[in-house]
């Protein structure tokens, strides 16, 4: 568990990723912008698990890809504290060769364990590939290292001669995790890493990720939509809505007492695995769909669906992300005055 004072590993500042929308036909003029991520700022503390949640289209995957520098952000900075004491680099300012050492430190675990492994490579080649690319000779030591990595993630080392098709979804996800671990990373970005797995296998994978975090002092950015999983594994949770960060708070505080109406609605929609609570809990239902990121509403992007909108300031003025006293950031004009309900089964 990271202390509030824990050192910042990664600082994202005013990050934007706008994709151009082009007209049909030969001219392909730029006719608009999809603001997938729009001015997002937050810190990732060393050793913590920070989850990013939101509906599809909120920009959480794009945010993860910007951190990985799969995308080139259109604005903002991603400041990363390197292993050299005190040195901070801006990942958005680096390219190619200069970025390479940091690519070893920040690795990704993907959602789909079927699509993310090359079917023509053996497990040994898949897990060993990052090492070979980093200059590790193809020798016995590599073979041993791959075997150790497989055992770390709960697979037998004899499996390394096999191809991905011989494994189930949960085992493939473990192979993906072993590959991500091969270069001793510091930060893992997991994009919906357990969403595609069956409940029983999902629990195994979550336990594994928690175990590895302690053993390797890993920091996780966990992108997910399943709030029960998020509540279980995160230290802090960031909520996104149409490209913007609307709330970021320590997990317990966020679930017990959300400060943004969107967080409240999201928590209220989580199905509770207890039929006895079904009738007792009053639900908030969001009308309509998530706003179109190429045509973001004026003012607060959530005002079109918000039950507390004042129809005036909320429509005109974009709320800034403010820091409240309990290590919480929120972007709502009325965060202090609203009395919002937490997740139904979390006692306040």
């Amino acid at each position: 568990m990271a202390e509030p004072s824990a050192a910042t590993l990664l600082e994202v500042r005013d990050l934007s990723m706008h994709f151009p929308v082009t007209s049909a036909g030969v001219l392909r003029r730029v006719v608009g912008q999809v603001k997938a991520v729009d001015g997002v700022s937050f810190c990732v503390r060393e050793g913590e698990t920070l989850s990013v949640v939101g509906e599809s289209g909120c920009g959480k995957t794009t945010l993860g890809r910007c951190i990985m520098r799969i995308y080139d952000p259109t604005a903002g900075s991603i400041r990363y504290r390197t292993r050299n004491e005190g040195e901070v680099v801006d990942l958005t300012a680096l390219d190619g060769r200069a970025l390479r050492p940091y690519r070893r430190d920040i690795r990704m675990i993907f959602q789909d364990p079927y699509a993310s492994l090359n079917p023509r490579m053996t497990v040994e080649e898949i897990v060993g590939e990052p090492l070979v690319l980093a200059g590790h000779p193809r020798n016995k030591a590599l073979h041993r290292r791959v075997g150790d990595l497989l055992e770390q993630v709960g697979l037998r080392r004899e499996y390394m001669a096999r191809y991905p098709h011989a494994f189930s979804g949960g085992e493939r996800q473990r192979i993906g995790i072993a590959r991500a671990l091969s270069l001793n990373p510091r930060l893992l970005v997991a994009d919906e890493a357990v969403s595609a797995l069956d409940v029983s296998v999902q629990a195994q994978t979550i336990n594994l990720l928690k175990k590895l975090q302690v053993e390797y002092k890993l920091t996780y950015v966990f992108i997910a939509h399943d709030l029960s999983v998020v509540e279980y594994i995160s230290d802090r949770v960031a909520v996104m809505y149409v490209g913007k960060l609307v709330e970021l708070a320590p997990t317990r505080a966020l679930f017990a007492r959300p400060a943004h109406p969107y967080t409240e609605a999201l928590l209220s929609a989580v199905p509770i695995p207890d039929p006895r609570l079904r009738k007792k809990v009053e639900r908030i239902r969001l009308a309509g769909e998530i706003a179109d990121p190429s045509n973001v509403p004026s003012g607060c992007p959530f005002h079109t669906r918000c039950a507390y909108s004042d129809g005036n300031r909320c429509v005109r003025e974009v709320p800034a992300l403010r820091t409240l006293e309990d290590d919480r950031q929120v972007a709502c004009h009325y965060a202090e005055t609203l009395e919002l309900k937490g997740a139904p089964q979390v006692a306040t």
Binding site: A203, Y232, Q345, V346
Partner: peptide, 11 residues
């Protein structure tokens, strides 16, 4: 076992 393997809020 299935019921116990679901992460629950407040666990």
């Amino acid at each position: 076992a299935l019921l116990q393997s679901v992460p629950r809020l407040s666990a």
